[in-house]
Design a protein around this nucleic acid. Sequence first.
DNA 1: TATATTTGCAACCAATTGGTTTCTTATATA
DNA 2: TATATAAGAAACCAATTGGTTGCAAATATA
Lengths: 111, 111
Amino acid sequence: MRRDIFQAIADPTRRAILALIALQAMTPNAIAENFNTTRQAVSKHLRILTECQLIKQKQQGREIYYSLEIEKMKEFDKWLEQYRKIWETRFNQLDNLLSKMQSSKSKTRKK
Amino acid sequence: MRRDIFQAIADPTRRAILALIALQAMTPNAIAENFNTTRQAVSKHLRILTECQLIKQKQQGREIYYSLEIEKMKEFDKWLEQYRKIWETRFNQLDNLLSKMQSSKSKTRKK
DNA sequence: TATATTTGCAACCAATTGGTTTCTTATATA
DNA sequence: TATATAAGAAACCAATTGGTTGCAAATATA
């Protein structure tokens, strides 16, 4: 069974769960109240998110609080880095072009 | 049929295709040579990536060159922003803690 | 202690996914 | 013009996915 962070965030409900518990740790029941689905379905999503370590759990009596594992989220940032490099390069190229236009413009003015 | 960028990058082959054509535009055949799969399978991946506009195509004779649509990649960055805020806040909190420890340390020294 | 609550787990089901094979269209080349 | 090449489209298939129902275990409460 493939279980990686990209697979995990492919599901919109799981992305919503991540956004929800990013603010505060929550129990499966409390999370499920926010969706039009059963507790068991949410529980399955939580299992998948836990398996790829995007969230962590903390038992408190018979309740289990789930919260975001922010360190793991940084892996998306790491993956994006290669593409960020590309769009920053393109931005710099545009920037260079603009400054060239600017300087040629001022040259024109000087004439 | 759900067709969004999160769904699109969930597949490892599609992520590899994105990384591949980020460097230079390529034809389906050329792309397929890099994977242990058929051209048709790659073609289906390309269709999915095209449908959610992560890549664009340019016809050249009977060949079609696929290349990255870098603007669309920024949407991941946008999604990540909410989480980046969180880890930056935590970093600042740690930073504050460290400077407090630092200042109390120097106070001790002054004694 | 008996009952209620919170939760995870397993079995099952329909829909989706990634892949293959086959076919057609369009362009290049002998 | 006949043949070869590049590529999309459709039909089909096995595996996976997201969801449901039912059940068992652990903890809280009357």
